[in-house]
Design a protein around this nucleic acid. Structure first.
Lengths: 109, 109
DNA sequence: ACCACTACATAGTAACACAAAGTAGAAAGA
DNA sequence: TCTTTCTACTTTGTGTTACTATGTAGTGGT
């Protein structure tokens, strides 16, 4: 799927929050997980700007751990504010999703 | 639902395309339709920037008609390029939508 | 005269995904 | 030893978008 840039705005951050909520993880791994999900064109620069933003907004806790196969990793985990933000994201998603389904189905909009 | 700004990026334009595809319509009416759909906070400025963009990108045809209850209206209708764009939008939406469902369901991402 | 509703227009802003380039650590092979 | 490959993080800049704020203007009602 090509050129998802615009439609992913506001959604990608939610995906990253969801991924982090599953288990403590780090930027590079998040990129790989998104790629595996099907968002193949997402690169490091994109994810890092997101995790930096999460950090700035105090939605994640950070723990630095060394790795045996490369530079040290910065592990992220959701704090309480992050959990709330994730819930809010899914609420918004469900709302928008239902409205789009409605728009698509009903000819009388 | 509050603060949908970011999540609507790239989506609102698709909604406007879909609305126009149903029948020839004009800016002010599009706003009212979106409001009725549930996007209550969307105002004229937002929609006009979108229809101007559609016009600039040659996705719509325009016809000016006078109204008995106010200033003249600019009616928009989708041309062939607009129809293609609308199809592309729904493809992207379906893709993203399915990926988010997958992400949400599977704990092993 | 004043207000409400209809209807279009536009300059400016903040937020976001992304491009592009860089820095580094570690392992493996030639 | 040198190069490559993979891992991993960082930063600057860009284009697109929804939204804010404000304005103009036509029509009808009170």
């Amino acid at each position: 799927m090509e050129n998802l840039t615009e439609i992913l705005k506001g959604i990608l951050e939610g995906c990253v929050l969801e991924i982090i909520s599953r288990e403590e993880t780090y930027g590079y791994e998040i990129v790989k997980k998104l790629n595996a999900l099907g968002f193949e064109d997402i690169v490091e620069g994109t994810v890092y700007t997101i995790v930096f933003r999460l950090e700035k907004n105090k939605l994640v806790d950070i723990q630095k751990k060394s790795s045996e196969i490369g530079p040290p990793r910065k592990f992220y985990s959701l704090n309480e504010a992050g959990q709330k933000e994730l819930s809010a994201f899914w609420s918004k998603w469900d709302f928008v999703s239902s409205k789009l389904t409605e728009l698509r189905r009903n000819s009388h909009v």
